[in-house]
Amino acid sequence: MSTVADKLAKKSSSKTSAKQVRLRLVYVDFWSAVKLSFLTAVALAIVTVVSVFLIFTVLQTTNLLGKLDEIVMAFSSGTFSLNEFLNLPQVMAFAAIVAILNLIVITVLGAVIAGIYNMMVKVTGGLLVGFTSN
């Protein structure tokens, strides 16, 4: 006599065959790569500006910049002050310049990598990617 538990055990022990598909990536669209790298660069630029602002405000509120300014003035005999150079508008302008330069570099780098990959595919045949259904 077979019970329901025996029937369920038989069903669970039989393995279902997982379908496998292997595809070859032989072309990366140039403009899609540029758009994706641009959007990634925009996100990174926003993160850069916000993180610089947060770090500067934390350093300002903990008075760490004031203590560092005292140390620098002691070494420079009072001729050089960090507070002249490290104020919020100048720090944020520097962060914006770095973010814009990163935006340009990352966008161009994405385009160059897409072009190199498309040329490399002619030699190597592309990247083999496998997918399964489990």
Rank of each mutant, 00 (worst) to 15 (best):
V52F: 14
M73D: 04
L88G: 00
N102Y: 03
F80E: 01
V52P: 02
L82A: 01
S37R: 01
S37D: 05
N87Q: 07
A41W: 02
I116Q: 11
M119F: 09
I116M: 12
N83V: 06
F94W: 08
I46C: 08
A41L: 05
I116R: 08
L44M: 08
F53L: 13
A114L: 09
I55W: 13
V91W: 03
A111M: 10
V50M: 11
E84D: 13
I116G: 09
N102Q: 12
T107H: 11
V98C: 04
I97P: 01
T40I: 09
L109T: 10
T61F: 13
L54T: 11
L64W: 10
L64N: 03
V91N: 05
K122W: 04
E84N: 12
A93N: 11
T61H: 08
T124M: 10
K67V: 12
L103P: 02
V112R: 10
G110P: 09
N118C: 11
G78Y: 05
F85I: 08
N118A: 09
K67S: 14
A74D: 14
T79K: 15
I71G: 02
Q90F: 14
N102L: 12
N87F: 06
V91T: 08
V108Y: 08
G78Q: 06
I116A: 15
S77R: 06
I106P: 00
L86V: 11
L65W: 04
L36A: 02
P89W: 03
F94C: 10
A99I: 04
L44C: 03
T48C: 12
V42I: 14
Q90D: 05
G78I: 02
G66F: 07
L82M: 12
F53I: 07
S77G: 05
E70L: 12
V42F: 08
S37C: 01
Q90E: 07
F85K: 09
S37A: 14
G78P: 07
V49I: 15
T40V: 06
V112A: 14
I97A: 15
G78V: 06
L44T: 01
T48E: 03
V58L: 15
L88D: 00
I100P: 01
V42R: 00
N83S: 10
A99R: 03
S37V: 02
F38S: 09
F53A: 15
T57I: 14
I100S: 05
A45Q: 03
L64M: 12
V121R: 05
V108Q: 04
K67H: 08
Q90Y: 13
T57E: 15
T48V: 05
F80C: 00
G110H: 10
N102M: 07
I116Y: 11
I113E: 14
L64D: 01
L59C: 11
Y117K: 06
A93K: 13
V123M: 02
I113Y: 14
V105N: 06
N102H: 05
A43L: 07
I71P: 00
A43N: 03
K67A: 15
Y117V: 06
A45K: 01
E84Y: 04
T79C: 01
L36D: 00
T124S: 14
V49G: 04
